[in-house]
């Protein structure tokens, strides 16, 4: 079968939805002729026309605000934020507006919007482009946050996200866009939202991660002498605690990894749930591998700031030696 990168897999998912559903609209900065700065939307404007796939003026608040208006009239907008670092311009549309629209209308109205954005770091972008702000959105109820870590998942999760009647923030890791390739079916398929994925089975320690950190965790698992189970969250809000708790109850040890700063992130919350529900099953204190609580590292020094497989493996060892 064909091997695709995440960029190609996402492009295919968008093309399938544009083809299948005339209400699907794709728009954002430089996504038309230019095909997006990472080429995720390459060729889509040519194929589906400038009314379905279009460049917008440079204004993130405008892009997401317009998405809400379009969705109100039954379109299914798939806006792009060029980098997730620019989400701050559009936070009201996300946290104040679209995520609570269903709630505010007593469950009567949905906003089926899928916001795509590249996030994370490790590719030496200019200052303020790389950021892992996902924790800010995972605090917001009413919007799912989905993060694929492989080309197969990217395609299936994006289709599920676009088909979901609720808003989704779909985060695409910068470093994974072209660095992983795998077999991806040509036809349409979906990968379920709200479900974590056991990417590597084991019974000694559970390692939970998402995005690029899944790959670091798998590398660490391969290097480790222990039997490591690696779980990819895939949807980071809401979290599939079921899958995680089953694993933790089996292994009795847990290490969680995130590329975002330590405090107030996805993993802190996850450990809270584990403490409440798995306490009696634990053989060691749960451990977190994260960067420190500073702003995202300056480009040149990203590699000493972002967690890597070495640090994860070390932490796995400490956990098992407890």
């Amino acid at each position: 079968m064909r091997q695709l990168t995440i960029v190609q897999a996402l492009n295919e998912a968008l093309a399938i939805k544009l083809e299948e559903d005339g209400d699907t609209l794709v728009f954002g900065e430089d996504i038309g002729k230019n095909g997006g700065v990472f080429r995720v939307t390459d060729g889509l404007q040519d194929k589906f026309g400038g009314d379905r796939v279009f460049d917008t003026p440079l204004a993130e608040s405008g892009i997401l605000g317009m998405a809400i208006g379009l969705a109100e009239n039954k379109f299914r907008p798939v806006p792009e934020l060029q980098f997730f670092g620019f989400v701050l311009e559009a936070m009201d549309s996300i946290a104040g507006q679209m995520s609570r629209y269903r709630y505010r209308t007593g469950g009567a109205k949905n906003l089926p919007i899928t916001i795509r954005a590249p996030f994370g770091g490790g590719v030496h972008t200019p200052e303020l482009h790389s950021d892992s702000f996902e924790g800010m959105v995972t605090q917001v109820p009413g919007i799912r946050v989905v993060v694929p870590s492989s080309p197969y998942d990217a395609k299936g999760l994006l289709i599920s996200s676009i088909e979901s009647d609720d808003p989704v923030l779909f985060l695409e890791h910068l470093k994974l866009y072209r660095s992983v390739k795998e077999e991806v079916p040509k036809e349409k398929y979906t990968v379920p939202l709200d479900k974590a994925n056991i990417v590597r089975a084991g019974d000694g320690v559970t390692v939970v991660a998402y995005g690029q950190m899944v790959h670091e965790a798998v590398l660490a698992a391969e290097k480790s002498d222990a039997s490591v189970e690696v779980i990819d969250l895939r949807t980071i809000s809401p979290i599939d605690m079921d899958t995680i708790e089953k694993s933790v109850k089996k292994t009795g040890n847990v290490v969680v990894v995130q590329e975002a700063q330590r405090s107030s992130g996805v993993m802190g919350n996850l450990l809270g749930e584990i403490a409440e529900h798995c306490f009696m099953y634990l053989d060691s204190p749960p451990k977190r591998v994260t960067p420190p609580d500073t702003a995202f590292a300056f480009g040149a020094a990203e590699n000493i700031w972002i967690p890597d497989s070495v640090k994860i493996e070390e932490t796995i060892r400490e956990t098992l030696e407890f």
């Binding site: 420190p292 020094a301 700031w305």
Partner: peptide, 8 residues
């Protein structure tokens, strides 16, 4: 070079 210490 930069240090994580310095960032903190």
């Amino acid at each position: 070079g930069q240090t994580v210490d310095g960032f903190i």
